[in-house]
Write a protein that binds this DNA or RNA. Structure first.
Lengths: 337, 337
DNA sequence: AGCATCCATGTGACCGTGCACATCGAGGAG
DNA sequence: CTCCTCGATGTGCACGGTCACATGGATGCT
C-alpha cells in the first residue's frame, strides 16, 4: 500500500521550463509572482505545471533562500485545555498563511532542554517560533537565549512587551474574586497553581488585588498542581477547616476535584461552601453543581500570536491588539452567603 | 529582540572540514556514523564541530537525500481528549527517533480537503504520515488515494490491516455493557456517536454484541455528537421515557452532560438510572457521581503508530503488537438494579 | 613477490531552487 | 537618429549536503 522503495523522480522546475519552452528562471518567476512576466508566457508555464503536476520542492527552496516557510511551536505544556486549544488555532492560522508547522514538546523545563529545543527548531530553519511557555523559568531562559529567529511567547506575563501576548489573567481573576465578594463572601481561599507558572501568579495577583481593594484579609493560598486529583485531596483536607466560605481554584480541573473532595467530606456546594474555577473547560457547565468560572478565548490568542509573529518575520510593524478579556460565567457552584 | 535581517551565515560542513584538516566527505561520514573512520580522525572532526557549534542543515540534507526526517500528522479531529493525547505521544516518540513533526489539521473531511492535505504533506517531503482520521469517510478516501509515502492510520477500524492501528473499541464497549448487565440491567440504551465515526460504530457494535449474547432486546440507539451539551439536552428529553434503566454513552463528555440533564429532570443517579461513559477523561473520576467508564491508553497507541510507520519507512517488517486493551473503571454512576 | 581486498579518505557531480547579472528588443527623450 | 530606460527573459552559480567513484596504503593469500 506504499511505494517507499522506487520513488519516481518528481518533475523539477527545469522539466516545466523545457515543456513550456522557457528558461527555468522564468518558471521560478511565475511561481513567485514576479510582475514582469508576459501574461501569455505565464499561461504557458502554468499549463506546463498543470500537465506535469509539478510541485515546488520545499527543501530546495529552503536551501536556496534559507527560509523554510515553517513556523515552530515550542510547547512546555502537557495537554491542558488552554494551551491545547491555542495550539490548534496557531496551526490553523499558520496554515492559512501558507506556513507549515513544526511542533516540539519540551521534555522538561531545564535551560538545557530549552536551549536544545530552540536550536533544533533553528536547525530546521523555521522562520519563527511560537513559544507556549507558561512557566516563568522557561520565559526567562528564552529571554537570555538571544534566539536568532523571531519568536512570540504565549500565556506569559501580562505586561506584554511585544514579544509576548496573553489574555488578561489578572483581570479575570480579579473579576471572579469580586463576584464572590459581591455574593457576600469575605473569607475566600485561593487554591493556586504551581509556583513557577506565570498564569498561576497572575491569577493569584488578581485575587490578592481584589481582596485588598475590598479591604478583606486574605488566607494564605494553597499551592496545587492543576490536576483534578490534587483538588480532590485538597478538598478532603480543607473540609475540616472553617476559616473560609468560598474557594477560588486557579483552574477548573482543580475546582471540580475540590468539589468532589468537599462532597465526600459531607459538605454541600454551594450551600455550605462556594467554589469557582478558571478556564471554562467544556464540562464545566455540566458538573454538579455547574461550575462558576471564567471563560477565555484561547483560540483567539493563538491566532493573534501568529499575526504578531508574521509581522516580525515580514518586518511589518507589530499589529495592535486590545486585551483578550475573559468573561465571567456565573453558574451554580457559587451562591450568596 | 530579534535579528531577522542580517542572519550570519551558519558554519557549513566545509568549514568543519577545513578546521579539522579533512575533506568535507569525511565530515559527512562522521555525521552519518560511517564505520570506516579512524577514531582519531573522528575525534578531530567532532572537536571542530563543537568549536564551530556546527549543526547540519536539514534543508540541504533533505534536498540531497529526498528524505526529510520529518513525519506528518494529519488530523481530522477537533481537540477531543483521545486524539489529543495520541498526538502528543506521537510527537514525543517521533522526536525521540530524531524525526521532526509537521502537523496539519483538516478544515473539513471532504475528499478534496483530504487530497489537498496529503499532497501538501508530500510536498513538504515528509517521510511518512500518521493519520488521525476517526471518520469512516476520511479513511476510505485515504485508501483510494494511493498516497506515495508510507502512512499509518490511528483510531480506525479494529480489523487492523497493517496500515491502521487502534485500541479494541469493540471489546471495551462490550465489556462495559456486560458490566451493566451483570449489575442486573436488561433495558440499556446506547447514546452513540455520530454516524460517520469509526469509534462510534465500534462502540455500538460492542454494545450490540453484548446485548445479543445476553439475549436481551435492544432499544434503538440515539445519535449524539460527542459533546456534553448534546448529552445534556438528550438527558432532559430521555428523562420522560421509562423504557430503560441504564444508559451507555459513547464517550465521557456525553455521559457527563447526560447526567446533568437527568439531574435537572429530577432523577437521581445511580438510584433512578445508571449512566456509563467511555474514555476516562481526567475529570471522570471527580464528577458527581464519579463516572463509571472505560479507560484507554491513547499515548501507547500514538507510540505504536510511530513504530509501525518507522518500520515501513525503513523497510523493516512491521512490529507485532497485541491489542491495546481498554480497562473498565467501575465507579459510582452505575449501580445494581 | 605478485595480486586481490579492504580500509580510510579525497574528488567532483548533483539534488532543485533563487539570485545577481547579462542580454535583447521596444519605446521615449533630446 | 542616437542614447537611455525599462520590460521580458536567459545564463551561471551558490546554497549545503550526499553519492558514486577514485586513490593510496596496509594486509592477506597463493
Amino acid at each position: 500500500m506504499s511505494s517507499s522503495s522506487e520513488r519516481a523522480r518528481m518533475p523539477s522546475i527545469r522539466d516545466v521550463a523545457r515543456l513550456a519552452g522557457v528558461s527555468h528562471q522564468t518558471v521560478s518567476r511565475v511561481l513567485n509572482e514576479h510582475p514582469s512576466i508576459r501574461p501569455e508566457t505565464k499561461e504557458r508555464v502554468l499549463d506546463a505545471i498543470r500537465v506535469l503536476d509539478y510541485r515546488p520542492n520545499v527543501a530546495a527552496r529552503a536551501l536556496a533562500t534559507s527560509r523554510s516557510n515553517t513556523l515552530g511551536i515550542l510547547s512546555a505544556t502537557t495537554g491542558e485545555f488552554g494551551p491545547t486549544s491555542s495550539i490548534a488555532a496557531i496551526e490553523d492560522a499558520a496554515r492559512a498563511e501558507r506556513y507549515a508547522i513544526s511542533t516540539l514538546n519540551l521534555p522538561d523545563t531545564t535551560p538545557e532542554a530549552i536551549g536544545h529545543a530552540v536550536r533544533q527548531l533553528v536547525r530546521e530553519s523555521v522562520d519563527g517560533i511560537v513559544v507556549l511557555a507558561p512557566q516563568v523559568r522557561v520565559f526567562n531562559v528564552l529571554r537570555g537565549l538571544a534566539v536568532s529567529v523571531p519568536f512570540v511567547s504565549l500565556q506569559t506575563a501580562s505586561g506584554s512587551d511585544g514579544i509576548s501576548h496573553s489574555a488578561d489573567q489578572v483581570a479575570g481573576a480579579r473579576m471572579i474574586t469580586e463576584y464572590l465578594i459581591r455574593l457576600g463572601h469575605s473569607d475566600i481561599l485561593h487554591l493556586a497553581g504551581p509556583q513557577d507558572w506565570i498564569e498561576a501568579e497572575s491569577r493569584m495577583r488578581g485575587y490578592l488585588d481584589a481582596m485588598r481593594d475590598a479591604d478583606l484579609s486574605t488566607i494564605p493560598p494553597i499551592r496545587g498542581d492543576w490536576t483534578a486529583d490534587f483538588g480532590y485531596f485538597a478538598g478532603q483536607e480543607l473540609a475540616r477547616r472553617r476559616d473560609f466560605t468560598a474557594v477560588f481554584a486557579a483552574n477548573d480541573l482543580m475546582a471540580i476535584g475540590l468539589m468532589h473532595g468537599f462532597r465526600d467530606a459531607g459538605m454541600r456546594i454551594p450551600a455550605d461552601i462556594s467554589v469557582v474555577g478558571f478556564d471554562d473547560v467544556p464540562v464545566a457547565a455540566h458538573v454538579a453543581p455547574p461550575l462558576t468560572t471564567v471563560h477565555q478565548d484561547f483560540s483567539e490568542l493563538g491566532r493573534r500570536a501568529v499575526q504578531i509573529l508574521l509581522a516580525q518575520i515580514r518586518g511589518d510593524s507589530a499589529p495592535v491588539f486590545g486585551p483578550v478579556v475573559p468573561v465571567l460565567c456565573g453558574r451554580e457552584s457559587a451562591a450568596s452567603r
